[in-house]
């Protein structure tokens, strides 16, 4: 698992990367009540706002961590946003992306690095 400074986790499996938000991020957000996911098939650019996530407190965006194509989204979390709080690093993944440049994956933190990052 790799981590971004935007509190996303990325799991590489072959040529597909699954993306979600970390338990730390889910806790900071509070109870999630709404998730808007991108369309499958969308080409996205790194740092583009592609997910809207609303908690009881506020709206936030999730940025595309890398360039690529969205190949699958997790409709279950749009139907049941509370999953994001219950199992952020498991069942409540957000989308799967096919990277257009796998070297972009190299800059992310490992688990130890992320733990140090969030202090």
């Amino acid at each position: 698992m790799k981590y971004t400074e935007e509190h996303e986790w990325l799991l590489e499996d072959g040529d597909i990367v699954t993306v979600g938000i970390t338990a730390h991020a889910a806790e900071q957000l509070g109870d999630v009540v709404f998730v808007e996911l991108p369309e499958t098939g969308t080409e996205v650019a790194k740092d583009e706002e592609i997910v809207v996530i609303e908690s009881v407190k506020a709206a936030s965006d999730i940025l595309a961590p890398i360039d690529g194509e969205i190949v699958e989204v997790n409709d279950a979390i749009a139907d049941n946003p509370a999953m994001v709080n219950d199992d952020p690093e498991g069942e409540a993944w957000f989308f799967k992306i096919k990277p257009s440049d796998t070297s972009q994956m190299d800059e992310f933190m490992d688990e130890a690095g992320y733990k140090a990052f969030i202090g």
Binding site: G30, D31, V33, V56, K57, N85
Partner: peptide, 11 residues
């Protein structure tokens, strides 16, 4: 602003 239970449960 909230306790560990969180806004939803507190409400």
């Amino acid at each position: 602003v909230q306790y560990p239970a969180g806004v939803m449960k507190e409400h």
